[in-house]
């Protein structure tokens, strides 16, 4: 029995996925760590893997009227410098991992892994990105927020894999991305904030904030965002502490080997407050 499949085309990949249930393997930088091998031994992968990284049709980054289409196997290093990619996503991607890992890793991997600390997921959710899932039965498109249901959990079926990620063309005017990592490079996130807004004539027309690594999934509260939308900058100024307090109960980090819950909460709220300050200054 083989431990891996190397499809020649997307259609062969879909067939193999249905027939064998092999794990989609794009860049593998998560799988190869999770099932890490010691020298001279094989990775302890529980199932055969389906290599997808080489398929040209999955490596494309393109743009049309609906937005930017990022193939499941496009490398982070290519996404980071692509002119088609929203600058917040470029910044996010270039702060992920390290140059050699970015030459292997993909967005689909970061999404499929569904780690609450997945940096790209945080910015993609702020950008209202969707995931296109392919199977022999056809394709379906879901908002990324709906695709990820818990730590390491997604709604992907056993005959599907991610074909591409779509980032809508229409985005707020301003963004601010802050990753608080364990160090300045090649770092995992202690917390992150992907924030966006449009302010027009002293009024907030759009407001988004997604928090990474401070809950079981990326935290984006559309209900709270709706409360901010429509505020004037004066109102925003008066309501800043109210907004921060409204977010507080939803930011539910844990203590782990990288940081502490109390720090993660405080720093997340401080960044939210800073973002609101930045909007008022730039308004």
């Amino acid at each position: 029995m083989t431990d891996s499949y190397y499809p020649k085309s997307l259609s062969e990949a879909l067939e193999l996925r249905r027939e064998t249930g092999a794990i989609p393997f794009a860049g593998g930088t998560d799988l190869m760590v999770r099932f890490r091998a010691q020298a001279g031994t094989l990775p302890k992968l529980p199932h055969p893997v389906l290599f997808l990284g080489h398929l040209e049709e999955l490596r494309q980054i393109s743009m049309d009227s609906s937005g930017t289409h990022i193939g499941a196997s496009a490398l982070l290093s290519d996404i980071g410098v692509s002119e088609h990619v929203h600058p917040m996503l470029s910044e996010t991607v270039m702060l992920m991992a390290s140059p050699p890992l970015r030459n292997l890793a993909t967005l689909a991997g970061n999404i499929g892994n569904a780690s609450p600390a997945g940096d790209a997921v945080c910015s993609l959710i702020a950008l209202d990105a969707s995931v296109v899932l392919a199977s022999l039965s056809g394709e379906r498109t879901l908002l990324l927020e709906e695709f990820i249901t818990g730590p390491g959990k997604t709604v992907m079926k056993s005959d599907e894999f991610i074909r591409e990620i779509v980032v809508p063309a229409d985005q707020p005017d301003r963004y601010w991305y802050r990753k608080v990592g364990t160090r300045k490079a090649n770092a995992l996130s202690k917390l992150s904030l992907s924030a966006m807004a449009t302010v027009h004539e002293h009024r907030v027309q759009d407001f988004r904030a997604a928090f990474g690594a401070v809950g079981p999934v990326v935290i984006r509260r559309r209900d709270l965002e709706a409360q901010v939308r429509g505020m004037t900058l004066d109102q925003l100024s008066r309501e800043t502490e109210g907004i921060v307090d409204a977010y507080r109960p939803h930011i539910i980090p844990i203590d782990d080997q990288r940081s502490q819950a109390v720090y993660r909460l405080q720093a997340s709220l401080n960044l939210l407050r800073r973002w609101i300050d930045l909007l008022m200054q730039g308004g």
């Binding site: 760590v33 390290s98 364990t182 160090r183 300045k184 490079a185 090649n186 770092a187 995992l188 080997q257 990288r258």
Partner: peptide
């Protein structure tokens, strides 16, 4: 840190040494 006598940080992803950028 020690947790129950074991080191809590035991990979290079968790025990952080400086990179070129720190």
């Amino acid at each position: 840190e020690l947790k129950d006598g074991k080191f809590f940080q035991h990979t290079m992803a968790d025990y952080i040494i400086p990179t070129t950028l720190d």
